[in-house]
Design a protein around this nucleic acid. Structure first.
Lengths: 200, 200
DNA sequence: CGTGTACTTGATCGTCTTCAAGAGCGGTGG
DNA sequence: CCACCGCTCTTGAAGACGATCAAGTACACG
């Protein structure tokens, strides 16, 4: 989905990985969100028409499309479902805030650890983890654009996490070797993801 | 509004300035949003109950409170108003994304300029600008927590914007001396704020 | 077997942080 | 009234973290 375009439907990501990103004039790119299966996205364009960012697939993806017209009808019929959709966008915002904190106030080591933690718990709820391992089809270049650092530095931070035997990251396969230490480095608290269920 | 609390109402900020922030274990603080009069906030707690961040007043504030119970009734009665409230949270998220880009990929000079631009156009729509001037009751310490840099560096970036005669910033009074240059430094495009009206 | 991409490592450079100290200002209490 | 305190802003100096430049390795693909 291109920046500036006006999509007429939103979508549930059924399979695959995607990111939201923005590109600056000099070509620098910043990834502002990573979407995993189970994420509903594109509600931005449902309410605001024009995209202010791009959505890019990292892999082949399967989507369940939801036409804006259908969503509008849904809204007039079900307050409950409206709340749930709205809630997904609120959680997106909460995640953005957590990323802002990570960008602004965490070391790149802690930031990276935080991302590894976040993706682990998000993938766990959709059963895409295998013990303490999961797959994340992202290159170090893209990871650099996510963390807001250079690709070279991403590599060095990864080296140091590996050296400490906190994680193993080979190709697209991540394994957490020491969860407690990882959480400690990341200062990770999953509350912002609102994963535990509560009456809605 | 304290992090972790469970407010029972949301609010329209009628007068005054407030910020959303998160504090890390070592005391480092990150401000993730600045609210100006006309902003509706606290919808996070309407849908998710527990706050994942704090809201702090920068000045005395006047609020118009909206009880969650009343909002729930409103949702069941008016699809249109629901859309508008939802939309404010979507714009919050879009702003968070723009801030993420600024944090990750802009120089601190550009980041600062971007913030000055954003607040100018947001205050302009609520008629709180006077020509190219506006008031922003924020200290350099708080500004540092917003931009994710040290207070000392904020001061130096401000000096350089002043030296170039791009802005004047005395106490709480900001005046833009060279809008074109400021926009150029910031690479500012207000599209993400969705201020131009469009059928909703 | 050649090419492109991702990953890795080393060396140098610049931005921003940290530490430190001083100036200006408003508020408080002796 | 004025000395003192605390906070903000300012400036200098040294140092850390991350960027950039550069080169080499590994691997998939045609």
């Amino acid at each position: 989905v291109a920046d500036g375009s006006r999509p007429t439907s939103s979508a549930l990501l059924v399979e695959g990985f995607a990111v939201r990103s923005k590109v600056l004039a000099d070509g620098a790119r910043q990834i502002t969100a990573i979407h995993v299966p189970g994420d509903f996205f594109g509600l931005h364009s449902f309410l605001l028409k024009q995209m202010d960012h791009s959505v890019v697939a990292l892999t082949g993806c399967r989507l369940a499309l939801a036409d804006h017209e259908a969503l509008r009808r849904l809204m007039s019929v079900s307050t409950h479902l409206t709340r749930l959709l709205w809630m997904t966008t609120i959680i997106d915002a909460a995640t953005h805030r957590e990323w802002l904190v990570a960008m602004g106030r965490r070391s790149s080591l802690s930031h990276m650890a935080h991302l590894v933690c976040e993706l682990f718990v998000r993938l766990q709820v959709v059963r895409l983890t295998d013990g303490l391992s999961y797959r994340l089809p992202i290159t170090q270049r893209q990871l650099a654009d996510t963390l807001g650092v250079s690709p070279v530095h991403v590599n060095r931070v990864l080296q140091s996490l590996r050296a400490e035997k906190v994680i193993s990251w080979v190709s697209t396969s991540i394994t957490i070797l020491n969860w407690n230490r990882l959480v400690e480095i990341a200062e990770f608290d999953p509350a912002y993801l609102s994963l535990r269920s509560e009456a809605r």
